[in-house]
Design a protein around this nucleic acid. Structure first.
Lengths: 152, 152
DNA sequence: CATCATGTAACATACAAAGTTACATGAGGC
DNA sequence: GCCTCATGTAACTTTGTATGTTACATGATG
């Protein structure tokens, strides 16, 4: 099944924004993500509503981080996307009359629920600040590659 | 994202088959699952290859269970479907050059991997026989509703 | 008031599961 | 032998959702 990459995408954007100051236009971010500005605005909309980022119109406008990165977890970001379903598999029927199906659902639901809970828990343990720290380690002595730095 | 219900579906079929003897035609099973015979054949193909079921052509033909239900786990059935991806989310890029993306992927991969492992482990703990026992409990004093029992 | 940037609707594309049609293959029953 | 039944499979259609694109309204800046 095709996999939803919005969480991956929006984290990428946020982490890039954390590396340098100043507002970023949707177009700049879109170039860095190799996608379309409208897609950026779409996935950022939920973050704005929760106050994690701000957006300004007009000259000098764009997106700005507006939160304490050490207080926002990957789970928060996931929630900002509208908490899309985490699992690629589900029950054929949610409230079946058939007892056979009920037995099947009960078994699968248990496993599914546990896996979802674990995943959410793991996402809740990682803050954006921790991601930033990890990135800095990876950068090592290397110079940070600021987005939009090479003209274009 | 739309959820893959093949595992749920094939378990439903297997559990129905465990409730009564004799071969079942794809059409009979399809009626019980409210779907198409070809869909049944499709999801049963993997199970046949692994020897969990057999199929016979011609008069009196159809599908038959061919395994020890206490030895086959939900994980085995999942594998028989070709081990489709379990998670609805994934990384935007698998082997990115961008260090930012690498940092994001590393964090997400960890969480994703743990959740998948837990789910597989849970599925591996449940056998088809256990599902059957649970079903019998649910049936209680009620009479089993054999598929195809009401004419039609 | 011209330009820039977001906000959003509307439409197009890509892709996988699910459903359908068509026909080949092979196993009885007569 | 031949008809019928049932699987096996390819090809096509439908559907749902993420993604991509176009178009235009809104508002801020110089």
């Amino acid at each position: 099944m095709r996999r939803d990459s919005r969480l991956s995408g929006v984290l990428h954007v946020l982490l890039h924004m954390a590396q340098q100051p100043g507002p970023f236009t949707s177009e700049t971010l879109a170039k860095a993500m190799d996608t379309n500005p409208v897609v950026i605005r779409r996935i950022m909309a939920g973050l704005r509503q929760l106050g994690y980022v701000r957006s300004e119109k007009g000259h000098g406008g764009g997106w700005t981080l507006a939160c304490d990165l050490s207080k926002v977890t990957l789970r928060d970001v996931y929630a900002a996307l509208g908490s899309p379903s985490l699992l690629a598999m589900g029950n054929r029927t949610e409230a079946p009359g058939c007892l056979v199906e009920q037995a099947v659902n009960a078994a699968l639901d248990q496993a599914f629920y546990d896996a979802e809970a674990l995943l959410l828990s793991r996402l809740g343990e990682v803050t954006l600040a921790m991601l930033g720290d990890d990135l800095r380690k990876r950068l090592g002595s290397r110079k940070i590659h600021h987005i939009g730095a090479h003209g274009a």
